[in-house]
Amino acid sequence: MLNCNWAQALTRYDCRTVTGLNGETGLEIGTPFSLPDGSAISLYMMPAGSHILLSDNGDTLFHLGSMGLDVWQAMRFKALRETASLRKMIIGEKGDLRMLAQQEHAAHAFAEAVTTILAISDWAAQQLKTEAKERDIIAEAEPYIIARDPKAAFKLRPRVRGESQAEHTFDILHGKDLIDVIAPHPAATGGVMRKVGDVTNGPYNEHLSPLIIVDDRTEPNKAHNEIGIIASISRVQSFTSLMSVMH
Results as ranks from 00 to 15, higher is better:
3 N>C: 03
4 C>T: 00
5 N>I: 03
5 N>W: 01
11 T>W: 03
14 D>R: 11
16 R>T: 05
16 R>Q: 06
17 T>Y: 00
18 V>N: 03
20 G>R: 10
24 E>L: 04
30 G>E: 07
33 F>V: 05
38 G>K: 02
38 G>I: 04
39 S>A: 13
40 A>H: 02
44 Y>D: 00
44 Y>E: 03
47 P>M: 10
50 S>N: 15
52 I>V: 15
55 S>V: 08
59 D>S: 12
59 D>T: 10
61 L>C: 08
62 F>L: 15
68 G>L: 12
69 L>D: 11
69 L>N: 11
71 V>G: 03
73 Q>H: 14
74 A>W: 06
74 A>F: 07
76 R>T: 15
77 F>R: 15
78 K>G: 03
79 A>L: 11
79 A>C: 03
79 A>E: 14
85 S>T: 02
86 L>G: 06
89 M>I: 02
90 I>H: 12
93 E>S: 14
96 D>L: 00
97 L>Y: 11
97 L>A: 07
103 Q>F: 01
104 E>D: 15
108 H>K: 13
109 A>H: 14
109 A>W: 08
109 A>C: 10
113 A>H: 12
114 V>S: 12
116 T>L: 09
116 T>K: 10
116 T>Y: 03
118 L>R: 13
118 L>T: 05
120 I>P: 03
122 D>P: 05
123 W>N: 09
123 W>D: 00
126 Q>K: 15
126 Q>D: 14
127 Q>P: 06
128 L>W: 10
130 T>H: 01
133 K>C: 00
135 R>V: 14
139 A>T: 05
140 E>Y: 01
142 E>Y: 00
142 E>L: 12
143 P>K: 03
143 P>N: 08
143 P>Y: 01
145 I>C: 02
145 I>P: 02
146 I>W: 01
147 A>Y: 04
153 A>P: 00
154 F>C: 00
156 L>N: 13
156 L>A: 08
156 L>Y: 10
157 R>D: 12
158 P>M: 09
159 R>L: 13
162 G>K: 02
164 S>E: 05
167 E>Q: 09
170 F>W: 13
171 D>G: 07
171 D>W: 00
172 I>F: 04
175 G>W: 11
176 K>A: 12
176 K>I: 09
179 I>W: 11
184 P>L: 04
184 P>S: 09
185 H>T: 11
186 P>T: 05
193 M>C: 04
194 R>C: 07
198 D>E: 01
200 T>D: 10
202 G>K: 00
204 Y>T: 08
207 H>Y: 11
208 L>A: 08
208 L>I: 01
210 P>Q: 09
210 P>S: 11
212 I>K: 04
212 I>W: 06
212 I>N: 04
214 V>M: 08
217 R>Q: 13
218 T>Y: 14
218 T>F: 10
218 T>K: 15
219 E>K: 14
220 P>F: 11
222 K>I: 01
222 K>F: 05
224 H>L: 11
224 H>V: 07
225 N>T: 04
227 I>E: 08
228 G>P: 02
228 G>T: 04
228 G>R: 12
230 I>C: 06
233 I>Y: 06
237 Q>E: 15
238 S>H: 10
241 S>N: 15
242 L>G: 09
243 M>W: 09
246 M>F: 07
